[in-house]
């Protein structure tokens, strides 16, 4: 068995696929940089992400897959599911070995697993497009904190850039400790360090725009006013808005001042 250590990026994974063929590696297991259980493996192989190699693999895959198939592969990578790299490799092997496009062969496990993973990421990125709740600061920045199950910021940045083209915004993934920031021109990936506790109420009061609290209360007020009590359906409510998202949803956080 060979342990492949790569940098955790999609380009890194593509490079790894190239080198598996190049060095005829067998029974590979993927690990991101920080993993340290390399002692368990007889061989370790370090992948240096190489855009040339990555592109060759990507172009090879593009020849055998539809645009939709490529998108699915890319989304599946960001699902961060257990063993997703190995599953994707098995899928890529099947794709590259077959003369016809196999993405519809859903009774094949590799194909089905990639589709499921892509579906999961797709669902999560759709949820984040819905559940981001921007708050306005004094310096006209709209910021939001999210904790998505999959690593979806790379997949939703275009949506937010297109939609909120005339406002500065920041979406921060507090689980993965990075954010995306739009400065009215382009979106950049950012890492943040906080001087004080970012969720303390004192800190929030200091940085918030004067109308921010009013709008949050308006939204809570609206959210409860449109509910029809005689149709109450808690199960459906939670199915659509699972509890793990509530702590970042303005309408599910009671207004403490009331």
């Amino acid at each position: 068995m060979t342990l492949l250590i790569y940098d955790g990026t999609f380009g890194g994974w593509l490079t790894a696929v190239f080198e598996i063929y190049e060095y005829k590696l067998k029974d590979v297991v993927f690990a991101k940089n920080e993993s340290s259980n390399s002692l368990l493996f007889s061989n370790t192989h370090h992948i240096e992400t190489d855009p040339k190699k990555a592109n060759r693999v990507l172009n090879g895959l593009k020849k055998h897959l539809s645009t939709h198939g490529i998108t699915n592969l890319y989304h599946a990578f960001f699902s961060e599911l257990d063993q997703i790299e190995e599953n994707l490799f098995r899928f890529a092997e099947y794709v590259l070995s077959s003369p016809v496009n196999i993405e519809g062969d859903l009774s094949n496990n590799a194909v089905l697993n990639v589709r499921k993973a892509a579906h999961l990421t797709g669902k999560e990125s759709h949820r984040m497009k819905a559940f981001v709740r921007f708050k306005l600061t004094k310096d006209n920045l709209y910021y939001a904190i999210v904790e998505p199950d999959c690593n979806v910021l790379p997949l939703i940045q275009k949506h937010f850039k297109d939609r909120y083209a005339d406002q500065k915004w920041l979406i921060y993934d507090s689980k993965r400790k990075y954010g995306i920031y739009y400065d009215l021109e382009q979106v950049a990936t950012v890492q943040l360090t906080f001087d004080s506790n970012p969720s303390s109420s004192k800190f929030l009061a200091e940085i918030s725009d004067e109308n921010e609290e009013f709008f949050q209360n308006l939204w809570r007020n609206y959210f409860s006013s449109v509910n029809i009590e005689s149709r109450k359906n808690t199960k459906l409510h939670i199915q659509h808005m699972p509890k793990r998202y509530w702590k970042n949803l303005t309408e599910k956080i009671p207004n403490l001042k009331k």
Binding site: A130, A165, F223, T234, L236, H237
Partner: peptide, 21 residues
Amino acid sequence: KGLGDTGNGICHAYTEDGRCV
């Protein structure tokens, strides 16, 4: 470069009766 666009539609929240907002 103004504000907003329309696409396939997004349900931003769900009330306690399970209907989308």
